[in-house]
Nucleic acid binder design. Structure first.
Lengths: 160, 160
DNA sequence: TATTGTTATACTCTATAACTATA
DNA sequence: TATAGTTATAGAGTATAACAATA
């Protein structure tokens, strides 16, 4: 269980003489800076808790998307998640090898390949989604449920 | 001026038969997913507008931090920005070569090096910070000023 | 001619180990 | 013994060009 870059509070009086941290007030007026910092926190918790499933964030996104969009193509996954097609290939191949997904010929387009979860894949997604729900709640525990909804709504307003 | 992955709206009726995008409703219930998507939008605009200064996000963060924390050390920059020391070295060296910063011996610690902006560096930071303020306003233009403040406050609540 | 999936490849970002000089 | 800065290097993430098969 690797926990790199975890903020370990230094012994009480140790950093009294010379403060460890810098004045970040200007940077903290920017959405970009704050969004990245918050994302890093969630990412850290995500990586720790999802390691047991062998899933990175992008893996989970693909699997969850396939659970709710059976038969989706690589092209659609790429466009939805902002991934470049060449970078999805090995990812899909690995999930195929793991027996989590299978490729079937596309009904209307001979070039495309429809991606489907296997029963094992569906079972894994169910467990993984539940874990993500819990981990998300923990990672945003300093927010009230109402604040969390507001945060998500405002983030979506930026990118929608 | 590279603008990759820009969402170019396809001709009106073109995608009517087979929808391009997938159902992302589950992913959109997660803070991590939404924070990354919003961050990507701001990042895109940042890269486009800051290219004239030859500054990436991390470069700007370092320079802005030094503007408001003169004499800060590499160690402090790393801890503040969550960068690993080895990855800051070439970045600092490049800014030194460009004449934006200079290294002075640390007053109290012979191992450390105090980093300071040169006059050219200070001038660049002034212009760059102004550009970031404008770009941030544009990138979050769908938010009211009040909503933008709320968004930033809630993001900070997650990582503070 | 355009698009889907793919290979090969390069570039950037992030991470680890180990060294030096100071403390 | 621990820390600041550094080197070398490895691994992950992201990018472009080009090709075969199909539309």
């Amino acid at each position: 269980m690797v926990t790199p870059r975890k903020k370990i509070p230094s012994p009480a009086g140790a950093a009294a003489a010379r403060s460890d941290h810098l004045d970040t007030r200007v940077l903290e007026t920017f959405v970009g800076y704050n969004a990245r910092r918050a994302w890093l926190v969630v990412t850290q918790v995500f990586a720790e808790r999802m390691a047991v499933y062998g899933l990175k964030q992008v893996d989970f996104s693909v699997l969850s998307l396939l659970a709710h969009n059976p038969g989706a193509t690589s092209r659609q996954l790429c466009s939805t998640l902002d991934i470049l097609p060449p970078n999805l290939v090995s990812l899909i191949a690995a999930m195929d090898s793991r027996g989590l997904i299978e490729r079937r010929p596309h009904p209307h387009d001979g070039r495309a390949i429809g991606l489907h979860l296997t029963p094992a894949g569906e079972q894994l997604v169910r467990e993984a989604e539940q874990t993500v729900i819990e981990l998300e709640a923990d990672a945003s525990a300093r927010l009230t449920p109402r604040e969390r909804e507001t945060l998500i709504r405002l983030l979506q307003k930026v990118y929608h």
